[in-house]
Design a protein around this nucleic acid. Structure first.
Lengths: 214, 214
DNA sequence: CCCTGATGTGACTGGTCAGTCATATGACCT
DNA sequence: AGGTCATATGACTGACCAGTCACATCAGGG
């Protein structure tokens, strides 16, 4: 957590600094992100940075936390209905993931890098990863009781597949329909009219049929 | 490609150097791998390294190339039968991938890092990535003519799913049955007796049912 | 025994980095 | 005007890095 001095900064200056730090960590991995570059770009002295943050790691953790908060907010907007079909829920989750990636590409990049490529092997990350897995595993268990997932399928394995596809799908779809990404960003719902929507639905259907009771 | 002097080195010394370089690049990403550490560990002078390689990038490219050769060799052993069912072929590919990971964990690590996490954005890597995609896309096209894949499924999308699952599955399975990995390594075929084999088959079946003609 | 060409060597250069610290600035109170 | 406290500053330290280069070593031929 940043020091008090950071929060005492005028709102505008703090936001400006965060934007620059975000850009730096989005375009370089942890080892290559440079505090020297950040402060130069933000127009503050090196020493000032160390009045705000204990060290580089603290800034990084703070950015990750901001990202997690933003994403949690994204995923919380329409509260999941209790006994929704889990594939519908999965579709909703994946779609929200894409929306998040469109709305916060830098945060997405930082988060993606944090989970992939053994940067940050801190307990914190291991823990986040594990809880994502158990979340999906619970989803699978629910799917089994609903009868929409074959009871013989290994729950952890199915969770792994969900997690993997959800993690990678957004980036893939965006890379396929890059050109007018900004347009779709303007109106959230328009994503479903985009050419990506069909690909999106196909993916969910493949999982649905693939895991459905035989 | 290394300089001639490198190949003039006595076999033993060259191998020893490569082992150390491999370990370094497997445990650090490109930016953090250190030539200074490598030469110190290998017991050669910094200057000598630069008699063998033009620069750090050349060593890295060489290691990647060695990895690609080894993997190609792994995937070439039983020549794919002409009109094998493509899911059987996919299963074989994935299994060969796991075998490779067991046999050459360091090469796997380096290769994985190279494709993930925008290290090495050199044309070379983009190209390798693209050719992997078209390879899978062709496989999907073949599956459609065989009737084992629904004609309505987007070929590129299916290729993406194949590629993603194949890439991640090995690591996941190995992480789930870590304890006696070394045992299975001893005899290649014994993988199919391992507890991972069932998970493995389930995965292929999910894709098979998921993509099968409706 | 010396010459020559290939190979080995490690101190050195110039660069970047994270983090520190003595000093300066400014705000607010008395 | 003086005093006190929080904050700002950037030169500096020590560390590491990739890559260089003048020099040492060694092998084999004449």
């Amino acid at each position: 957590m940043p020091k008090e001095t950071f929060f005492n900064l005028p709102e505008e200056k703090r936001q400006h600094f965060l934007e620059i730090a975000l850009a730096e960590f989005a375009s370089h991995d942890y080892a290559n992100a440079s505090i020297s570059r950040i402060v130069a770009q933000a127009g503050i002295a090196k020493g000032s940075f160390y009045q705000y943050f204990a060290d580089k790691a603290e800034l990084y953790r703070y950015l990750l936390e901001l990202g997690a908060q933003q994403k949690a907010q994204f995923l919380a907007t329409p509260p999941p209905e209790a006994d929704m079909d889990i594939f519908a829920y999965l579709a909703w989750l994946a779609q929200a993931g894409v929306q998040f990636e469109l709305a916060h590409p830098q945060l997405s990049q930082i988060g993606y890098r944090a989970v992939k490529s053994g940067d940050v092997p801190s307990e914190l990350m291991q823990q986040a990863r594990a809880s994502a897995y158990t979340f999906f595993a619970q989803l699978v268990a629910q799917g089994k009781t609903q009868g929409s997932i074959d009871a013989q399928i290994d729950e952890e394995l199915a969770a792994f597949i969900f997690h993997t596809i959800i993690t990678e799908l957004g980036g893939y779809l965006l890379s396929r329909v890059e050109e007018n990404a900004a347009d779709r960003l303007a109106d959230g719902r328009s994503f479903f009219d985009s050419p990506a929507a069909d690909l999106f639905n196909q993916t969910i259907h493949i999982l649905q049929f693939g895991m459905g009771a035989r």
